[in-house]
């Protein structure tokens, strides 16, 4: 009797704790979303519903241009990182060769080194070789950050692929390339899609690298927001932030559907 009571109390406490964590994680985001619908420019309470800030945002050329640029850059980055990353993941999975461990370890610096260091290093190097600041530099930087994510996600999916299926296809007369195309690619497709979504999210949300590499007046959305916040923010920034956060969460939810991310199915 006592034991059962105790485990019920533990269960309730556990759930309460989890609820508190979720409150901590989501409260600021919800507050910001709510404030984007508040009429007051200085976040004054009581709350008064208004869509003014969304209307203002829709008329703000700088925000719209930055948003368009961010999306466009993210799409280019996604295409390049997904193609290069998938090719590498397949090669690392299929072939055993000297130095393979080194190549795998080399994927970690872009993730593990603080972006402040990577970003400033890129700035120095790109200036030195004449690429300079601007959209091409931002794309080169974003792809480098997204690549390891794509490779890790696709590799995880490849680990569940049975090599013997390709052998079966070849025993039935398919050339190695046809065997890959007919059997392996359909199998890893969900992993590739998830990798692409991760790459998109990495690029779309990336601030630090973009901050150092974009040309003033020609910046991505996060850089624009940062500048606006430091200059003293307006609720228009609230509106666009709410849209960004909703958008990236949706992208990640879709990505989660394509991976077994988060444990057993």
């Amino acid at each position: 009797m006592r034991a059962r009571n105790r485990s019920r109390i533990a269960g309730t406490l556990g759930r309460a704790y989890l609820a508190m964590i979720l409150l901590f994680l989501y409260a600021p985001i919800l507050v910001m979303a709510a404030m984007s619908f508040n009429a007051s420019e200085f976040y004054q309470l009581p709350f008064e519903f208004s869509t003014t800030w969304y209307e203002r945002m829709a008329g703000n050329d700088a925000i719209l241009r930055a948003a368009a640029r961010s999306i466009w850059i993210a799409m280019v980055v996604t295409a390049i990182a997904t193609a290069l990353g998938t090719a590498s993941a397949v090669a690392l999975w299929r072939y055993d060769f000297w130095g393979k461990r080194v190549l795998q370890v080399l994927l970690f610096p872009p993730i593990a080194i603080p972006w402040l260091i990577t970003g400033t290093a890129m700035l120095i190097f790109f200036f030195g070789v004449g690429i300079g600041r601007g959209t091409p530099a931002v794309i080169i930087g974003h792809v480098a950050l997204a690549l390891p994510y794509v490779i890790v996600v696709v590799t995880a999916r490849l680990a569940t692929f049975e090599r013997v299926l390709e052998e079966a296809a070849r025993s039935l007369g398919a050339s190695p390339w046809l065997a890959t195309q007919a059997v392996m690619l359909p199998w890893i497709a969900p992993g590739v899609i998830a990798g692409a979504l991760f790459a998109f999210a990495v690029s779309f949300d990336q601030f630090v690298i973009s901050y150092f590499l974009s040309e003033p007046g020609d910046s991505t959305l996060p850089v624009l927001i940062y500048t606006a916040i430091r200059k003293g923010f307006t609720p228009e920034i609230n509106a666009i932030s709410t849209i960004i956060i909703a958008f990236s969460m949706v992208v990640m939810l879709i990505a989660a559907r394509f991976t077994s991310f988060g444990g057993e199915r």
Partner: peptide, 18 residues
């Protein structure tokens, strides 16, 4: 729990400012 991690960190910091 891990979903917020994949949303823009700059925007989340900004929401704390509010």
């Amino acid at each position: 729990v891990i979903l917020p991690f994949w949303s823009n960190s700059l925007v989340r910091i900004f929401s704390w400012a509010i």
